[in-house]
Design a protein around this nucleic acid. Structure first.
Lengths: 113, 113
DNA sequence: GGCATACATTCAAATATTATTATATTTTTA
DNA sequence: TAAAAATATAATAATATTTGAATGTATGCC
């Protein structure tokens, strides 16, 4: 079981639009840096920096193909997280039943929303 | 379908150890601020700051019970994400099949790991 | 009304993240 | 072997996040 610290670290590392798009692409297959340049409107060094961050955290890896670096996903939780994020939830969660569970609480007052 | 920017924003907001612990507790039921003080080793104002951030992003809400604020989850994706993060994955993803999909690539060279 | 409780807000300092620019590295090709 | 291609690294500047300290606000109770 992952610690809360590790969970936070993982989320922090993927919580960036460019990195999410990189990961989305990698769930479809191997991609090299120049492939990413085609659809990310950020500079090449910046793409490399995002890729390095993901690799340093064990989320992706690469192999060499001539002078290309072919990146691919290695962390299996990533496709699952992306699938959840794409999902549409119709409703917010049901409001809690009338009586608060909190230790000090008594009968609930007005809901402020 | 959530935009990549919205996905990143959601992840960024929950990607903090204290906020993850708050959310873990809230998946179990309603909690007020003093309940959180018992297991988070951070100051009361800091707890309030984290709660405000989560509320400003539509992840939690509260109702008043006398002078207690009873917080509860409203974003339905949160329990699902937490469940995924708790899950243990035995293996890393399988390495990609031998031939890179990348446009420019030829036959893969040595894997550098 | 006055005090205590429960909690929020504000401001500032410390720290972390991000993007930019310039430069370096590695491999292929001519 | 020199040049070009593909990519990484380093340094810096801009921005965002986090925390701590002080103070503010609302509610219930005496």
């Amino acid at each position: 079981m992952r610690s809360v610290g590790k969970m936070a670290e993982l989320l922090r590392v993927i919580a960036h639009p460019a990195r999410l798009r990189i990961l989305e692409e990698l769930t479809k297959g191997v991609k090299c840096v120049s492939d990413f340049e085609e659809f990310l409107e950020i500079s090449q060094p910046n793409i490399s920096q995002h890729l390095s961050l993901l690799r340093n955290h064990g989320i992706i890896d690469y192999y060499m193909d001539g002078r290309l670096r072919c990146y691919f996903l290695i962390d299996p939780v990533i496709p699952d997280i992306l699938e959840l994020l794409r999902k549409d939830y119709a409703e917010t969660l049901p409001a809690p039943a009338c009586c608060p569970v909190t230790k000090k609480g008594k009968y609930p007052g007005e809901r402020k929303r």
